[in-house]
């Protein structure tokens, strides 16, 4: 079964009298353990798609299944529980908790979302700290580490709950090219190591090439799909 199934999904936002169509009948499917990118200019619908897949928002029309669950029908509380169990998030601004250390930031979802016992928490956090190369920085606070290091911590935090899917909205937008590549490579490494599906949005053409599948968006429509090693230009 595909991890993500999106069929004729539309999303409208209403601001007073004005209705904005953010997505117009989008359909695609994403396999498990794939590395997928959504590309497009501002306002093309990249973030909206990620929000819908991430159960942060609901489609106005269409079907949306993540890991076999119709997430459009989940309540607010069920959505939160689903996210905590199945989905990890990486944010453009890292969004680490400033009052927690690197170690505690990674541990946070296990404590507050999954309530795991301490030994299992410790094992998972220590392992991820090693994987993302932050073991020696674990006692530092976010304001004591660089942007690239913060995003490494964010990657570890997204993976610590063993999610099937990690969503990253412009994860490299606030990083220099070198660090951006390092973070993307780290994400690829994690995808290979943990079998996690990574879906990220970007408009950085240089790192788009790192994705296995790239979906091109414009005006809320899927206009192109590029599969690495496959043929170009065939919309889904």
């Amino acid at each position: 079964m595909k991890l993500i199934q999106v069929k004729n999904v539309s999303k409208e936002y209403r601001t007073g009298e004005i209705t904005v169509k953010a997505l117009r009948g989008v359909s695609f499917e994403i396999e498990r353990a794939s590395f997928v990118s959504f590309v497009g200019p501002s306002g093309s619908g990249k973030t909206t798609i990620l929000n819908l897949i991430g159960c942060l928002d609901k489609p106005t029309e269409g079907e949306l299944k993540v890991s076999g669950t119709d997430v459009a029908g989940l309540s607010r509380k069920e959505s939160a529980a689903f996210r905590g169990k199945h989905i990890g998030f990486i944010f453009q601004d890292f969004n680490l908790m400033p009052v927690l250390t690197v170690y505690e930031n990674i541990e946070y979802p296990l404590l507050m979302v999954q309530s795991l016992p301490s030994t299992e928490r410790k094992d998972r956090v220590e392992k991820l700290l090693e994987e993302v190369g932050m073991a020696d920085q674990k006692n530092k606070y976010p304001d004591q580490i660089s942007g690239g290091q913060k995003q490494r911590v964010a990657v570890a935090r997204a993976l610590v709950t063993n999610p099937e899917l990690v969503l990253a909205d412009e994860p490299t937008a606030n990083l220099d090219s070198e660090t951006a590549y390092a973070v993307i490579n780290l994400m690829k490494k994690m995808k290979d190591g943990f079998g996690t599906t990574f879906v990220f949005s970007t408009h950085d053409q240089k790192i788009v090439g790192e994705a296995e599948i790239v979906y091109f968006l414009a005006d809320g429509k899927l206009v192109d799909e590029k599969v690495k090693g496959g043929k170009n230009g065939q919309p889904v």
Binding site: R83, G84, I87, G88, M97, Y108, P109, M112, V113, R157
Partner: peptide, 16 residues
């Protein structure tokens, strides 16, 4: 507010 958004996004239940 952004911090609340982050913890809510990663699955922290409203009650917590």
């Amino acid at each position: 507010i952004r911090e609340i958004g982050t913890i809510a996004a990663i699955g922290t239940l409203p009650m917590k």
